[in-house]
Design a protein around this nucleic acid. Structure first.
Lengths: 253, 253
DNA sequence: TACAAAACGATCATAAACATGCAATATGAA
DNA sequence: TTCATATTGCATGTTTATGATCGTTTTGTA
């Protein structure tokens, strides 16, 4: 097995379980203990975990799953959602906001061939992917980077958004329901996303079915701020009905 | 098969799978491993992927590992410069600025083990690499992304910097000389870097020897704004002497 | 504290992957 | 067609990753 694969899998296991043992990794990755130790040493030098005797524990990002891990799940659904989302974006001069998240990242990828777009984002991973596309104008908000989500948040991010007026925004969330509205796990992230939504004429939420009807810790905004939800067929039917009653157009990808 | 065809197929495979191996590509594209390696090298130079041993991973993707610890050819000087630069940074609460550039990127890598640092940068690639580190506080300026340099520039970037006061900054340049001072190829980049320098108490220029005595198109600031230059032994001796006469401490890494 | 088992780091030989120089081939312009 | 340039594949020596061995350190238990 290749080193890069091993490193990824070790981080996956760590994200899932919080700690791993060398013996466990030797079996799971079919590598020698020497290689496992070398891998752990490397990851520790990058501050991605802390070594213990017999294994390692997650360093810093234990409770919220890192973005890379969540990215693997439901990738096909997210790509279908993103493909539908891209059809909502016309050609021509248009200012478009993108918040962080794996689904919005797929939306960004679906938009790389559009022309004349100005894309505003507070997601570092999206910014990195779009930065070298000459056909797009990319504006990044400032802010403090959150290692768990790769989002730029806080007062600087919000101040950056103050002067902008966006035609359309795709927003990723951890939960959307008719009574609470949009919600996410982190309160500062929620506040920053709310500012972006307030500066946007038309807001479309992109979220896979598992988020529908769910309520996460921090509320972003009530359902009234949202024009449309694009999700997949695994979403709970009752929750979708309630969202439609609340005036949100629902599209299944 | 034509090179152009290979390049797009490689990118297609990467987009689909996240990572590829050289062996895999040799079979799929029916080309020699030498050609595949040349292709990967080319794509890496355009920030479209990151090479690993045995293959490559999608570049700019936040949820793949920052595996760029592997050194290229001429990176040795830059790494030595970066190692010296890191010794100028003490432990403890300290606010540190980093502009874009390959040398400053090496400085960022040399700083990942420091604790208590607040790092402010307008370079997207540096931000992506540092965002994962829980031991650092990372603040990204806003701004418009330049695809050539991965830097965030313009009024938004400058407004982001207005409220900050930095203890120390490492600045990358395209040219440094005693009469003109610091210069770079792009005027907007120059202006943004100038604002960062104005907000900083102590400015250290990091540049390999080929930049010393050189004058690029756009002037950033006069030599008086700079405390120290860290470069390598290939720098022109006369130019170094003039810089020292202008009050800049010169260190050869 | 003493002891045994497990885990650890260091070292080494092997094998895979790597960069590079060079000759042959393919491509595009005159 | 003919020449100039660029690209390709092979062969070379070099670097890097890996797994086994061995002596040392840590951990858990009596």
């Amino acid at each position: 097995m290749r080193q890069e694969t091993r490193l990824s899998l070790i981080l996956d296991l760590l994200a899932e379980k919080g700690s791993v043992t060398v013996t466990e990794l030797v079996e799971a990755l079919e590598a020698s203990s020497a290689s496992i130790r070398r891998d752990l040493e490397l990851l520790e030098s990058q501050h991605l975990l802390s070594r213990t005797h017999g294994g390692a524990v997650a360093g810093g990002l234990a409770y919220e799953l890192p973005l890379r891990y969540r990215g693997g799940r439901n990738k096909e659904e997210k790509q279908r959602i993103a493909a539908v989302a891209a059809t909502r974006v016309g050609e021509g001069p248009l200012s478009l906001g993108l918040t962080g998240g794996t689904t919005t990242t797929e939306v960004a990828r679906a938009l790389v061939n559009h022309k004349g777009l100005t894309i505003v984002t507070n997601a570092l991973n999206i910014a990195s992917e779009l930065a070298l596309r000459p056909n797009l104008k990319l504006i990044v908000t400032g802010g403090t980077a959150r290692s768990e989500s790769y989002e730029l948040v806080g007062p600087l991010a919000e101040a950056s958004l103050e002067g902008m007026n966006l035609d359309l925004a795709f927003v990723g969330v951890d939960g959307i329901s008719a009574d609470v509205g949009l919600s996410t796990h982190h309160e500062v992230e929620a506040h920053t996303n709310r500012v972006l939504i307030e500066r946007t004429r038309r807001v479309i939420v992109v979220a896979d079915g598992s988020k529908v009807g769910h309520k996460a810790f921090a509320r972003i905004c009530p359902p009234s701020g949202v024009s449309e939800l694009i999700t997949d067929a695994s979403a709970d039917a009752d929750a979708l009905q309630q969202l439609e009653n609340a005036g949100i157009k629902v599209t299944l990808a």
